[in-house]
Amino acid sequence: PDSPLARWTKSLHSLLGDQDGAHLFRTFLEREKCVDTLDFWFACNGFRQMDLKDTKTLRVAKAIYKRYIENNSIVAKQLKPATKTYIRDSIKKQQIDSAMFDQAQTEIQSTMEENAYQMFLTSDIYLEYV
């Protein structure tokens, strides 16, 4: 019951917390052309751990915004307009906060749980690995 595979099917969180699981899921998403959603999810986690006093942190917030939210990418399409506005305004005012991407990450995570994660568990990529 403690095998990695048992953990992968438990939840999306357990899958992403496992190196091989995250890697395989990434390969699957690359094929489905929505790997940006996973990279965004990890970027949010990485951002939360950054030091707010470090000038790098604002640059990373801007980079995340530019890469995933400002344009019409797959991440932007899955976010609520209010969530995008909130992040845009925070960056404009340079009001950087560790939790500024939390809501966006939650929205992306819910979509991943409902769609990509379920598809992954029945995909040939996963079944072949099993």
């Binding site: 992403l16 917390g17 496992d18 190196q19 699981g21 995250a22 990279d39 990890f42 970027a43 949010c44 986690n45 990485g46 951002f47 751990q49 950054m50 790098k56 640059r59 990373v60 801007k62 980079a63 995340i64 530019k66 890469r67």
Partner: peptide, 20 residues
């Protein structure tokens, strides 16, 4: 000075699970 892409990549990598 690091490029934006490098900073973003570094941020993503820092959050990836490590081998136990």
């Amino acid at each position: 000075i690091d490029s934006e892409d490098d900073l973003l990549q570094e941020c993503i990598s820092s959050a990836m699970p490590k081998k136990k």
